[in-house]
Every structure is written in structure tokens, then in C-alpha cells.
Amino acid sequence: MKASTLAALFDLRSVIALLFGVYGLVLTLLGALGTGPADLDKAGGVHLNLWTGIAMLAVAAGFVLWVWLRPPVVAAPSEPSDDTDARPGGH
């Protein structure tokens, strides 16, 4: 249990979800609460922070969903990998 929770936390997909989740949240809030007319003029009338924030939250949710559907495989206690040559077999 502990090992798999750790693996899930450190999965690259979770890291992307964390980054986009935090960015998305900040931008959505900023866009919803703090968009002034100057900001709107700049972006040609698009609520840029708000829409980018929402899109980023969607991306984050997508990655969370992916991790949830396909949990990271916990690497088996790695095979005795001290073949001095350190070149794996493969096919």
C-alpha cells in the first residue's frame, strides 16, 4: 500500500496534474475576480486568464483520470541487475 501510494505520487502524470491544477486554479480565480478592462483590451476581448485557467484544470483532470484508470505499475523489486556490463537483455 505504502509503496504504491508513493509510486502514484511520483508518477510523471501526477506531477503534470499537480502543476496544471495549481496553475489552472490560480488563473481561473484571477480571471474570474481580477480581470480589468485593461487586461481585456490587451487580449482582444478574450478572458484569457479565465479560459486558460479552465483549460489547464481540464488538462489536470485528464491526467488525474488517466492515473486513476491506469495506476502506475510498481516496479518489482528490481531483478539482480549487477551484470557488470549493465546492458539489459531485451529482445
Binding site: 496553475y23 490560480v26 488563473l27 484571477l30 480581470t35 490587451k42 484569457l48
Partner: peptide, 11 residues
């Protein structure tokens, strides 16, 4: 600088 408002500018 021309089109991005603060917030998204940080990103």
C-alpha cells in the same frame, strides 16, 4: 508583453 495580462504572463 503586448497581449498577455498578468497571471498568464507568469506561466
Amino acid at each position: 508583453g503586448e497581449v498577455l495580462p498578468n497571471g498568464i504572463l507568469g506561466v
